[in-house]
Structures are given as structure tokens and as C-alpha cells.
Design a protein around this nucleic acid. Sequence first.
DNA 1: ACGAGGATGCTCT
DNA 2: GAGCATCCTCGTG
Length: 240
Amino acid sequence: MVVMLQEVRSGRLDSAFFDRSALEVAPALLGKLLVRELDEGNGSARLIAGRIVETEAYMQDDPAFHAWGIVDVPTGLVKPSGRGYALFAPPGTAYVYLCYGVHWLLNVVTEREGIAGCVLIRALEPVAGHEHMTQRRPAARTRIDLCNGPGKLTQAFAISGVHHQTNLCTGPIYFSASGCEDPVDMATSARIGISRAIERPWRFFERDSAFVSPGIPSDIAAAKRRKRRNDRRLRTKLGG
DNA sequence: ACGAGGATGCTCT
DNA sequence: GAGCATCCTCGTG
């Protein structure tokens, strides 16, 4: 896939695209590009781009959501303290936060201003700027390892807390629909790595893509843990 | 292949 | 103090 800078710029997604439910935006982002333009000085820009192959939706009234519980129910007022407040920002705003004290995770805010919702970008198929990504991710051994996880792709794209609450429709980090006309063979599952609301099928990914993250959906992971615990208990009983 | 554990910092109870 | 929207390395089969 050859990517031309002008073409990518002309396909830029605007705030109207994100001005709806996260449950609509998350699947709609599959097949689109996440783009980063790095200023090289002398007026030229270096392009980093990846085709989105995995997303997750997070919604108001969602116990796994960072905005959960910050609305005062009797009055309907939003408590202005806490990190979740940023999720009420206008559509297309970046919500970037540090996970496990180690990894930055990129979300894009959805819904009109005053309603919370976001989509987590979980995995990309690298399309442009391969050398730059490899440089930023020395642990990656193959092209697949560059962006197949939410913490990996922010590393590859050099996205961090400084981009929190920046505008993803008008800035150097944006989404583009250029070159993405082919329909995506989409599948869904429960979200990954969460402990609450694990039954909601709000993860969207390209079926059979080699570039989706290796994570296990939380409902399946929980069932596995239960089985392991049970097996261990039975062995202990037989042995003792 | 798969499982265990450590790194590391912010948020909320 | 606990609990994370993770990733990597190093053990064992």
C-alpha cells in the first residue's frame, strides 16, 4: 500500500465523524488510518501511519469506563475532579492516560460535548514510517510486533501524555479514510484486560488479521482462571 | 506454546 | 493500600 501525504491529508476525519455513540465509532474506525506527521523542519513532514484493525468502545453507564460514577445522579452534574472529566470533552479530543504506570493508551472522545464516551485504539497494521516505528520499538522482532497492542502503538507513534486532550481532527495526529474503501471483515468480542462489565461485546477487530493484539477477551480469561483454580484445588485434594 | 512475575505511577477507596 | 483498558523476560513443557 503506497501512501501519499496529500491523499492521506485529504481523507482526514473531522469532528462530525466522532459526534455519535462510541458503539458506532469503534467499528467505523476499523480499516481507517491513524496518522502522525512529524515535522522535519525545512517545511517537509515525515509520515507515520497504520491501518486500524482493533478498537474498543467505552460508554457512559459502563462500569469499566473511567467516567463511571463521576456524574452526581440526583443533580446530573459532572464532578470536575478526576481523570474521567476529560471524557466529556468535544468529539475528536484525545484521551491519553498512563496504564500500569508504564504504557500510554490512546483513546478518541466520542459523543457531543457534555456526554462521555470514547474509543480505545488497540492495534494497527503498519502502513508507513516503518523505520521510525522500529527505532521507537527495539523489542519488536517482526512487523507484526510494532503496533499489535494499545501500549505498543503509542510507543511506535511517539504518543504520550503531552497529547492528552489535544485535538485529533486538526492537529498532527489524526485519522484518515484515504485508501480504505475496501469493506472490513469485522468480528466482535468482549473487551480485553478489564475486570468489570466483562460480558459486553464491545471490542471490534478485523477477523483473521495477523496484526490484532494477542490479548485474551476478559470473559474468556476469567473462565480460564476459574478452571485453573478449580484444577489446582482438585489436585491438592487428591494429593493431600 | 504457555504461565508467572516484575516494572512503575496514577486514581480512588 | 489496592487496583489497574500492558508489555517484556525468563522459566518450564
